[in-house]
Nucleic acid binder design. Structure first.
Length: 280
DNA sequence: CACCAGGCAAGCC
DNA sequence: GGCTTGCATGGT
């Protein structure tokens, strides 16, 4: 099996894959992470001076994984820029190996619709069932993996099919979003090219996509780093540390404080605050 | 049993 | 614009 080696500078597998931005990267007993993207299944492993990507060729690294893993961005610069106070220095110190993945648009859209009023373990469970039921199988050395289903595949489903996967009341949103995407009404390249505010307005026309889901999709799949997705955890931390209590106040405060680095700051804060709560 | 989980739409004001 | 309520499902 071929593998490639990349720098581990500002890149930690636990931080990146368990910070909450993605739902389909799974930590293995040996500490490696397996996942699927771009129709490819790979395994990442940390070594003392590098990260090894297994089941990946140099050309696959160059054409896909380098961008997906955001390996060409200078996170040292980002971390300096968002370290505006003691809280942010603590959060950056805690999750300093986070990289914002460039996830595929349709996968992010469906996953974050499922995420609303849901718990992360349950989100992962439902997404995994969706892939096992409707994705393409990929045979690997560590078992059968499944790609995230194409929009065309999900567009023929009915509400009851999503309900059978445990999606609950989000079933009708998933039907609608899948059909819109399959029709080409949601073109990720067009959305990516739009100014952030316009892309938000466009994506929020989808039923089941509100402020928070919209921001997560645009941040985690289209690189709209000027967004500060504000969920219960971020609202909490902004209330505690920046006295911005409401969701809208927290979001605008975050975006004013961090500007084009809002998405990175949000992710350091989210990971730090949520892990801190877990330990207690 | 109640309450919460990476919220949202609809119905009010 | 902002506020309230119901919502499938699984966990504590």
């Amino acid at each position: 099996m071929n593998s490639v080696r990349v720098s581990n500078r500002d890149f930690d597998l636990v931080h990146t894959f368990d910070c909450g931005q993605c739902f389909r990267w799974n930590r293995q007993p040996d500490g490696s992470y397996t996942g699927v993207a771009g129709g490819m299944a790979v395994r990442l492993r940390e070594e003392p001076d590098s990260v090894v990507i297994e089941n990946c060729s140099e050309s696959e690294l160059a054409s896909f994984w380098r961008r997906y893993l955001d390996l060409d961005r200078d996170y040292g610069e980002i971390k300096r820029a968002v370290s505006i106070n003691d809280l942010m220095r603590a959060a950056v110190g805690y999750g300093g190996g986070i990289r914002i993945l460039r996830q595929e648009f349709f996968e992010a859209l469906i996953s974050y619709i499922i995420s609303q009023n849901n718990s992360i373990p349950n989100i992962k469970r439902v997404v995994e069932r969706l892939c096992a039921a409707y994705g393409e199988p990929i045979e690997t050395e560590w078992g059968t993996a499944y790609s995230f289903p194409a929009a065309e595949r999900l567009a023929v489903l009915e509400e009851r099919d999503f309900r059978a996967l445990g999606a609950g009341f989000r079933d009708r949103y998933l039907v609608g979003a899948s059909r819109l995407a399959a029709e080409g009404a949601l073109d990720p390249e067009k959305l990516a090219a739009m100014p952030t505010a316009e892309a938000r307005a466009e994506l929020m026309k989808v039923k089941g996509v509100g402020n928070k889901v919209c921001d997560c999709v645009l941040l985690f799949s289209l690189g709209k780093f000027d967004l500060f997705p504000t969920d219960t955890w971020i609202r909490k931390v902004m209330e505690e540390s920046f006295s911005a209590g409401s969701v809208s106040a927290a979001k605008s405060a975050g975006e004013e404080l961090f500007g084009g680095y809002s998405g990175f700051a949000q992710q350091y804060l989210f990971y730090w605050r949520r892990e801190r709560d877990k330990i207690k």
